[in-house]
Design a protein around this nucleic acid. Structure first.
Lengths: 139, 139
DNA sequence: CTTGACCTTGAAGTTCACTTTAAGGTTAGG
DNA sequence: CCTAACCTTAAAGTGAACTTCAAGGTCAAG
């Protein structure tokens, strides 16, 4: 499978796939006698893993450190599990932050909608900010 | 209040405050006869609003478009409320995605921990990915 | 044998949100 | 008067994650 085909299948741009290779996220790749890259199904899997990890909030650097023994098997199970558990905690923290954000946004909307057209918006802002600060601290 | 003082009070670097000014997020600022910027309490408020909006996931461009009539009062209430509501929806979507991520991570951890030391990790990966895809689709 | 769609490379460009640097002007304290 | 700590500007640098470009090689179809 050449890069264009892999790109179509994975939904990633060829430039992006080659970029990941340069960055060491994909191991070394087979080449045909013409020099074209020859990808295996495994690479597609790997790309999916990379994209998922990104969606889970891992940076490319983190991802590289998580799956480095790309030579053969064994992704150093313990390190991987530890990293995943850490990420679960981080995601949970992010969830809490988002809940606060959500509440804050709702509060701001309620405040703004409660005011009749006139009124000094900057005065409102002060009150709204006070609310938000309380919520952030209480969250 | 000069930029250093505002920086101390707001917790933002002076360079960042001046950057926001260049980017049109803060209106024009009073200058002393020496050319030094003279900030009002309002600017500090504005900075807090900007930082909160960023935390809520607004880009600087979006923020600029949300509070542009910085000449006087009235932040175009309707536009602001509409944008906030849109953002609430986006945040909710992100929450859902995070829940899926969370579940996915837990599933991966369980899978990995369930396997005794040996076993081809790439085979695991395929099964795990199948799970994840299902979860993402079902979520 | 030419056209067009593919592939290769290295290098440079892009966007975002800043920070750092360079070269100066100002001001408070000893 | 000097020094250190401020302030000013424009311009360049940073890092993440890519994309685009330039200049070429390859390959299947007509």
């Amino acid at each position: 499978m050449k890069v264009g085909e892999l790109a179509r299948e994975s939904g990633l741009a060829p430039s992006r796939i080659r970029f990941y290779e340069r960055e060491g996220l994909i191991g070394s790749i087979d080449r045909g006698p013409n020099g074209y890259r020859q990808y295996s199904r495994g690479t597609r899997q790997l790309l999916e893993i990379i994209v998922m990890a990104q969606q889970a909030g891992f940076s490319l650097g983190e991802i590289r450190n998580l799956l480095p023994p790309h030579g053969k098997g064994d992704w150093s199970k313990d390190k991987l599990v530890a990293a995943l558990k850490t990420k679960v905690i981080e995601v949970a923290a992010l969830q809490r932050r988002l809940s606060e954000t959500q509440a804050g946004l709702e509060a701001v909307i309620a405040r703004i909608e409660a005011r009749p057209p006139g009124g000094d918006c900057f005065e409102n802002a002060e009150a709204v900010l006070a609310d938000l600060r309380d919520q952030v601290k209480a969250g």
